[in-house]
Design a protein around this nucleic acid. Structure first.
Lengths: 169, 169
DNA sequence: GCCATTCCGAGGCACAGTGTCTTGATAAGC
DNA sequence: GCTTATCAAGACACTGTGCCTCGGAATGGC
């Protein structure tokens, strides 16, 4: 329903009708639209963001950034994630839900764990993960348009360089 | 109303009542809650993100990142901006509004223009702006909690190093 | 195989918010 | 001083929410 008709048209009543189920039955399992969205998208999201390891660290980072971009801009699960993130700005309960699931953070950390042996100057995980995925996520949330593949490649290269070389002082 | 009672309690009816104005009069000037939020927060946001230039580029970047963090986590205008960004994930009209205003992007570009002379390897503006502000914005949107001052300093230092040194190849 | 109990779809209900419309009082313009 | 435009107040139809009630169906015990 989210993909077909947009967030506003995704109502609890509509979900129940479409499922051929009473409204009370929906409320029995999920008390919130956010819970439904999260449960509906979690496994797809994890799968789509779990990219095949690449031989070269730069390719590994780039493949992840491209998967993340595709997820956020074209995947139904990504649409659900963005809707959740939107709700999270209005509602602290949803924010806690999103934070606990940490879909993007988990996937980012997995890539960083593979790259870290090649990048001695990489910061600890929360910062490194934010540096890698943050620009991609923020631009899409703020404009709806992704960074270009060339920009993703530049970004991956720049980070890997900085993480490899260490501080220039 | 947003600050005092949260986004859900900020209704058009309530706004009109609190303004001592008929509902029709509110609709005459703004057709959407998003337009009200944007207009109410734009000038404060621009002011709060317009940091005093610092002598050293690293300090300039850091001061901006700290201002951005304070804006997003503690300022009423920042709360409005996050609410707008949330709405933008549900509603393409709001997304266009946010993109056109580009509050964070404009402020980020202003800082980058000052730093660019000292950073020959800095990418062109959209990417560099995303690299600088994206991690800060994304982490706050996803978790509600900001990066620590130490992480901000690390981030500014790492970017400046990478932008100064150029690609390591 | 029968009955009792639980489950659950259907839909009614009160409530709240939206956006439009009508009304009557106030203020401005001539 | 009279006409005209403005606008606060609130009625309105509509939609969604979350709760509740009611029957019919499926289940389990005997």
């Amino acid at each position: 329903m989210l993909v077909e008709q947009g967030y506003a048209a995704m109502t609890m009543k509509g979900i129940a009708e479409r499922a051929g189920v009473g409204r009370q039955t929906v409320y029995r399992w999920w008390s919130t639209k956010a819970e439904i969205l999260l449960e509906a998208s979690t496994s797809d999201a994890a799968h789509e963001l779990d990219v095949e390891p690449q031989a070269r660290p730069a390719d590994d980072l780039l493949a992840f950034l491209e998967a993340l971009t595709a997820f956020l801009t074209t995947s139904p699960a990504g649409l659900a994630y963005r809707a959740l993130l939107g709700e999270a700005q209005h509602d602290t309960a949803v924010r806690d839900l999103v934070r606990a699931a940490d879909l993007v953070g988990t996937a980012t950390s997995a890539v960083l764990a593979r790259v870290r042996p090649h990048a001695p100057a990489m910061p600890t995980s929360p910062l490194a993960a934010a540096q890698l995925a943050g620009p991609v996520v923020a631009v899409i949330l703020e404009t709806g348009n992704p960074l270009t593949p060339a920009q993703l490649a530049d970004h991956a290269g720049l980070l890997l360089g900085a993480w490899t070389a260490g501080p220039p002082r």
